[in-house]
Design a protein around this nucleic acid. Sequence first.
DNA 1: CTTGACCTTCCAGTGTCGGGAGGGCCCATC
DNA 2: GATGGGCCCTCCCGACACTGGAAGGTCAAG
Lengths: 142, 142
Amino acid sequence: MNIKEAAARSGLPAKTIRYYEDIGLVRPLRGPNGYRRFRDADLHKLGFLGRARSLGFTIEECRTLLALWEDRARASADVKQLAERHLVRISDKIAELQAMQATLSHLVQACAGDDRPDCPILEGLAPGCCHRTGGPPHGPSA
Amino acid sequence: MNIKEAAARSGLPAKTIRYYEDIGLVRPLRGPNGYRRFRDADLHKLGFLGRARSLGFTIEECRTLLALWEDRARASADVKQLAERHLVRISDKIAELQAMQATLSHLVQACAGDDRPDCPILEGLAPGCCHRTGGPPHGPSA
DNA sequence: CTTGACCTTCCAGTGTCGGGAGGGCCCATC
DNA sequence: GATGGGCCCTCCCGACACTGGAAGGTCAAG
């Protein structure tokens, strides 16, 4: 099948599928006109990738998982280790977001939110004020 | 003071400070040799930015917050609205991560993690298997 | 005068695509 | 045979918020 049907069946945008081919995650055949031709095995891979990505695995982890998936002799311990490391990352991220949430909701609760200029939120962000969560100043990344 | 001291005092890398100047968040003076010269007001801004960023506000939100901070006649409602929208984003993100966490930890628990090839994690990622969390296949972004 | 720390600008890369330009292919219809 | 519309191709740029590095200017100490 052509890319549009592969996209519809896998749930991935055609652009993403082309990108995945670009970085070597899938290798569909090519017809004589240069069109990509996807077999069932390619579809399976795409579905696998979509689900792994939706669980937050990076592309490189997906590449590893895909290799393990296709290796019938793999040890399940290898997969489990990868997944557990990813779970740790997820937990860390959740904790980080919860810390932001706690700090910010304190500030929001303290703010009247009317047409007066007094604003505990801005005051809380001002230098030398109040207690902080203490994290390094690089929240949303990592 | 020069950029290095401003970086040390604000907790931001010098590169980041240059970037912030580039996009117009701070406007330090320049000495006759072309070096940036930071006044206390610039330092305050940098600290403000660092804390707002650490709470997960985007650069554009920081720009808005900074404008509100410097506007002595702003209504605190404007700030509160911005912060509340951001809180919603944080909650959504947490929920998304928790869904990933739930799905993945189920799979991990079911996996023996030994040297045999049977792996419920990979099976759970395979097409046409088991129940999913159902989210769109774009986890870590957004 | 040399050394080394500091400063400058500019360019390129990160990760994961999405948007769009410019052009080719294919099928159906007139 | 010509035309239209849909599908496909490659290639390049932009997004986010920086980070690294190269090439070169400036300053203070020895």
